[in-house]
Amino acid sequence: MLSNKRISLKGPDLLAEFEDNWQTEMGAAIIGKERVVLRGKDLLSELSNHRWMELIVFSITGEESSKLARLLEGMWVISTSFPDPRLWNNRVAALGGTARTTGALALSAASAVSEADAYGLRVTTRSIDMLFRFKKNLDEGAKLEDLITREFKKYRVVSGYGRPLVSKDERVQPLLRFAKSIGMGAGPYVKLALDISDYLDKSRYRFQINVSAVISALMADEGVPPENLSYFGIFAFISGMYPCHIDAKNKPEGTLFPLSTQRINYTSEHVHRKWISGGKI
């Protein structure tokens, strides 16, 4: 926690107070003492037997939860590990392979691309936020139908419902089955997500639930705030990206979905123009 003195400082005084003075509870490598501390625990002894996902959960939240870690692992296996280079973020990983860049450059770019509006991290972040807002409003007496109509009016989307290419999402039932197998998936937010799905399916919108809403609901039932869900998901797609990248790297260079010049559809009328130096006057 920052002291009151530090909080009250402003401008250059604030920066001067922090110069060579980073005080943190998060952790550090105690150089020369063979110790590493993470959130008050010794990484090399107290945390050394943790599974990687358990450590990630602890790093992000400061709380230890094997259950949440297991749920996250299952969620990413089922919902975000498709090894298909046609998917937009995976295709970045594959293009990196066909253009012979490094694995880290290709996969980090592909991961950054996963923070998308049409799929991926922005959808789950908005979906869990919507579920929290809906639940609060419903508890205060609002009607689900009104909330959905308002959401559509304001944002033209109900995050977590509908899908870019197909309507039905094949991942929903396997993920719900997995959650059930580890004693989860029966909370109020999963019920709310399915209630929204029922309503949309029968309404004029005809949208079906996609896996983002299920992920968001499972996380909401665990009390995960939107910000943490977006952190959890940063590398959710990585397992599907590796094969796309490796496959393209192992095939002849430049052969991933090559495009001839005819594959460019120039939609303006082609008028051959001549440049006049100095630009327009």
Binding site: L259, S260, T261, I264, Y266, T267, S268, R273
Partner: peptide
């Protein structure tokens, strides 16, 4: 065939290679 739709760029192919451009136009300029 699926295509990239653009108002920015137009290409004409080299006679011996449809995957190489002989001329590239940006908004009509060569």
């Amino acid at each position: 065939r699926e295509q990239i739709t653009t108002k920015i760029w137009r290409e004409e192919a080299e006679p011996d290679n449809p995957f190489a451009a002989s001329t590239c136009y940006c908004s009509g300029y060569d």
